[in-house]
């Protein structure tokens, strides 16, 4: 009996610690999303019962989803990137000017978007990883640089009229068997925009990368403990650099998806997107201290964030300030939950 007790204790400890990690946060996020959506369907009804409502959430937030995925990667390595929102704005503006005034085509505009994202990722990653600056300061400077650059390119809104591009914007992927019947009794199938497909493919790719490749495991190792990762023979600097480069690339792709959705470039695009991306990652269970996080959680983080925005708007608080306050409140709550979980985890370790 006395021999068995420590073993049992060890087992229970192990189980508890596995729950306090990613799983608990992920379960909370999924539960929050499902409860919120069900409540919206039951109490609000206004369109929430239609499948198209769900797909509209995806349509509007495809770019946010990609940005959040990039943010999650950086946050897993223990960094942060607050420049993504303004990079999105810069990409929209640069592509719009490229298509409208420089006579570019769709293919070169995609290359331009990826190039801008990569450039920001490489420079910021180099400064953070190899010159060891605080990621927050570097990316804050990146944010203001992108902001200034956007207005230097053009301070007005530019709508895109390029035929091929507009066709791509309007392209709808219909979803079989899902849809609603309108008043005349005609079945309207649900649809998603092409950006959603790209975003979801990227989510799957990044999920697999984090879970099954060496690079993905390195991200977790570096974020969990810098020094022990170094001792294990992981190139810590290169890993951090790659995380920032991938985040920059995601910002480029996310920027192009935003461009596809908005079909225009404007200095006011994607205001506060970095905040939403950070909030989605945190709600999705990524710890700010690094080492813990999950792309699947981020997906649900984005979904719950956009659902609560939708609910706030449909409750009649359509002023944009209400959504800001709600997002901040939600971020605050999840930060507190994280902090409590972390301090409990430290206690169990001791």
């Amino acid at each position: 009996m006395s021999i068995n007790t420590p073993a049992l204790n060890g087992k229970s400890l192990k189980r508890r610690s596995s729950y306090t990690d990613t799983n608990l946060l992920l379960i909370i996020t999924i539960a929050v999303f499902i409860v919120m959506y069900v409540c919206a369907v039951v109490f609000l009804k206004k369109g929430f019962t239609k499948p198209q409502m769900f797909f509209n959430i995806l349509n509007e937030n495809a770019s946010l989803l990609v940005l959040s995925c990039g943010m999650t990667l950086v946050m897993i390595t223990g960094g942060i990137d607050i420049s993504v929102g303004q990079v999105t704005s810069l990409v929209c503006m640069a592509c719009a000017v490229h298509l409208e005034q420089n006579g570019g085509n769709v293919f070169t505009s995609i290359l331009l978007a990826l190039g801008i994202g990569l450039a920001f990722g490489i420079v910021q990653g180099f400064l953070v990883a190899y010159l060891e600056f605080q990621p927050f300061i570097v990316t804050l400077a990146g944010l203001f640089f992108a902001k200034g650059l956007t207005t230097i390119i053009s301070s007005d809104r530019i709508s895109v009229t390029n035929e091929a591009f507009v066709k791509l914007c309007r392209y709808e992927v219909t979803i079989p068997f899902l849809g609603s019947v309108n008043k005349k009794g005609i079945f309207i199938p649900a649809y998603v925009e092409i950006g959603v497909v790209v975003a979801l493919v990227l989510v799957v790719l990044l999920f697999c990368m984090l879970r099954w490749t060496k690079l993905g495991r390195n991200f977790y190792a570096v974020g969990g403990n810098n020094q022990s990762a170094n001792m294990l023979g992981i190139n810590v600097k290169l890993t951090k650099f790659l995380a920032h480069v991938l985040c920059g690339l995601c910002a480029g792709i996310g920027g192009y998806l935003f461009f596809l959705h908005a079909c225009s470039g404007s200095p006011l695009h994607a205001q506060g997107a970095e905040m939403n991306a950070i909030a989605s990652s945190i709600i999705g269970g990524t710890l700010l201290s690094g080492g813990v996080g999950n792309i699947a959680g981020t997906l649900f983080g984005v979904l719950s964030l956009s659902t609560i925005k939708m609910i706030v708007t449909s409750l009649g608080f359509d002023d944009p300030w209400w959504t800001n306050i709600t997002v901040a409140l939600m971020l605050c709550i999840f930060l507190l939950v994280q902090s409590v979980i972390l301090s409990r985890k430290n206690k169990t370790k001791k």
């Binding site: 400064l127 300061i137 570097v138 804050l140 400077a141 990146g142 944010l143 203001f144 640089f145 902001k147 200034g148 650059l149 207005t151 230097i152 301070s155 200095p267």
Partner: peptide
């Protein structure tokens, strides 16, 4: 509005 770009360079 473009001033922030120059200041960012100074910060860096």
């Amino acid at each position: 509005s473009a001033i922030s770009a120059y200041k960012a360079i100074v910060v860096i």
